[in-house]
Simulated assay, not measured.
Amino acid sequence: MTSFVFVPVTAADLGMFALLAGLGLVHAEVTRKIERIRRSLSVTPYINMTSVWMLPAALLLPMPLVPVLSCVLYLHLAFRRRMRRVAPHRTITNASTTSMASFASLLALHLVAGPVALTSSDVDTTTLAIFAAVAAYFVVDALITVIALYFAAPEKATARSLLGSFEDNALELTNLCLGALLLAALLFAPALSAAIFFPMFVLQKAVLAKQLEELASKDQKTGLLNSVAWHSSGNNELSRAGRTGAAFSVLMIDLDYFKKINDTFGHLAGDDMLIALADLLKRETRSHDLVGRFGGEEFVVLLAGSGEADALVAAERIRHQITEMVVQSRMNDGSPVTIADRSASIGVAAYPASGDTLEEVLAAADAAVYAAKRSGRNRVVGTSISDLVGTPG
């Protein structure tokens, strides 16, 4: 500890600290509006841009200055969030996590190429050491974040909520790669460090555009396609099927007696039931199938390239999975509740047997749902194939 505190700090070190802090603060101010919108739209762990500055800081500055820079950047971010103040413990946690990830990157650099890695004439070893530093920063930052998020709310922990999406992790890796490029600029041409602003700004605008696109196309409660986006993608599939002569099928899925869940347990439990069903539908369908929520308890699935016979098999598998669902939730007063023994009525229709347009196929599947409900619920009903599958509910 003593050796850490009394690491010598030179005037050149203080100059590098001031440069990195200045770049980070100016960038945060310039992009504050973009980041505020990005933060408000994030449903997974929010990825900011501090690692662009922290990676070169970890490898260039004396160790005592690294957590100081982290504190400066995160205190500024907390202070500038005027609309909603950040809880102090979050700022401390974020700054600490970033500092530990920075120290891990420095350790990786030294393990690969020694303490003189950045001044070595062995370019290949130095490059490998920097890549190792990037990897160490990414892994340690992710690991600490996962542990913190899990213990903050273990009952709500999912792989996506803890690890984030592929796009989230790709963004963090991109930030670290930009940090490595900034490191090279600071070592060989410090004046070029200002050039980092433009690619960072473009990157942030692109990420925001992607988030806005997803917001416009996704149902915010379940993460599935909303009605408008589903119809748009469905009509694209219709055009493709018309050109190639392929078939596709539509499953209309309606939870039986969903209103009773809301009335008995409350709307929070009802929402958890809808989210659980959405997750089930994503697991039981292929990546190129279209899964959407039309509102309430009504879901729709387009199975690309599947005729009605195959769709009936898939629908029956989904119906059976729904009957085995066990959803842990809470009532409006916070008391725990378990939702089980649920069922769904599913209607199946196929193109082109049930219609020449997407709306005609949807109408046929919707009519099949009502037939399933009239027949006792907890059933799968086809249209052109007069099969009823399932158990009366």
Rank of each mutant, 00 (worst) to 15 (best):
S345Y: 04
S120R: 08
R283S: 13
P199R: 12
V134M: 11
K156Q: 14
Y150A: 06
A246Q: 14
L19Q: 10
D168T: 02
S345L: 11
A104H: 04
P56K: 01
A148G: 05
K282Q: 13
S354K: 02
T98M: 11
P45A: 08
S343A: 14
S96L: 12
D219S: 02
Y46F: 15
R377Y: 07
L14T: 12
A95K: 00
V26N: 06
A57C: 12
V228M: 08
P64L: 07
S384Q: 06
E360L: 09
A349F: 00
D341F: 07
L280G: 01
V66C: 02
F151T: 11
D263E: 14
N48E: 13
A185R: 06
A216P: 00
L111S: 09
L255Q: 02
V228K: 09
I130E: 02
R85D: 01
V43F: 13
A191R: 13
E155L: 10
S3N: 14
L171G: 01
P199D: 14
A191E: 14
L212W: 07
P67Q: 13
S51H: 05
D310G: 12
G307K: 08
E324R: 15
M83Y: 14
L77Y: 05
E214D: 11
N378Q: 11
S233K: 14
I322T: 06
S335W: 07
T50E: 11
G242Q: 15
L312S: 03
L268C: 08
A142L: 15
V146S: 01
L203G: 05
L181N: 09
L60E: 01
T127A: 13
G234F: 02
Q321V: 06
M100N: 02
G390L: 01
S232W: 10
I275Y: 00
G393M: 07
L77V: 08
A135P: 01
G270H: 04
A21F: 05
T244D: 11
L20A: 04
A349G: 04
Y370I: 05
P154H: 08
R160F: 02
L255F: 07
N175F: 00
N332E: 15
P392C: 11
E308Q: 13
T323D: 10
R82Q: 15
A132N: 11
A11Y: 00
E308G: 00
T383H: 04
T98F: 08
M325G: 11
Y150I: 05
A311K: 02
A350W: 00
A241N: 00
A349P: 03
L182M: 14
E214F: 02
R330Q: 10
L19T: 09
P336C: 12
V313A: 07
T98I: 06
